[in-house]
Design a protein around this nucleic acid. Structure first.
Lengths: 121, 121
DNA sequence: CCCTAATATTGATAACCGTCTATGTCTTCG
DNA sequence: CGAAGACATAGACGGTTATCAATATTAGGG
């Protein structure tokens, strides 16, 4: 099943797919990448991603993230889990704190998908 | 009443937002762009988008799209409506047939969001 | 004018999702 | 050890979604 890409982390197998506009996606390709978009498709999770990404050092502690929202701590924890399970965030526990950081490869997969390659005449 | 077109001023649906990795998204920005991702975040709709985009002439008739799936005609019609309402597809009725085509600006909004602008040291 | 074919809409149902409260698991510190 | 703090997990609940069968709508052809 090796996709012959630069595999930095074995766990993710983050797809995969040619641009939407290049050729019809197979069902398998669509099934692989849809979960990534689904994980992103929530306002809270989008803000979490942007907070993590733009935090100094490229990582953010849950304690910082909780304060940015009017939501309960378990709710934020749930959203972080969704993003982590989708392969969009890495988690590292250091002492009592948990730090999250963007998985650039996963974002790149989405970017490749929605890249608009101009004309199909 | 039928609000089949909610905020369907096309210009307003093509947000909006800086790259995820550039700075924290405001809640308003997140609320604007999340629906686009939500509309995309389904395997059937991803395949519909890619089928439309890669069809000759840049447009596809529903009659062509139905045959590509093992789903009922109303289900495909529903997914096309979701994409249309999100501003991702344009619809044109010609005679008995309905033709859909990609709204490049909407896709570009998503592309801008997930674009990975390298390091924030 | 009806008949047929192409899409859209409606209404129902089962599955899923976001949120909360309550509780569990570690880790550190006194 | 035992208490406190940071985070995760479990379970419940209301709202949303994907799907289908049935029906409505519209357009073109006899």
């Amino acid at each position: 099943m090796s996709k012959s890409r630069l595999a930095l982390d074995p766990a993710s197998t983050v797809a995969c797919c040619p641009p939407l506009t290049a050729q019809p996606l197979s069902q398998d390709q669509a099934d692989q990448i849809a979960p990534l978009l689904k994980a992103l498709a929530d306002p809270v999770r989008l803000r979490l991603m942007s907070l993590v990404a733009s935090h100094s050092g490229g990582e953010a502690c849950v304690c910082d993230l909780n304060d940015a929202f009017d939501l309960s701590q378990p709710t934020i924890s749930h959203h972080l889990k969704v993003l982590h399970d989708a392969g969009l965030l890495d988690r590292e526990k250091r002492g009592v704190w948990a730090y999250y950081r963007i998985r650039a490869e996963a974002l790149a997969s989405v970017a490749a998908l929605v890249a608009y390659t101009p004309a199909t005449p």
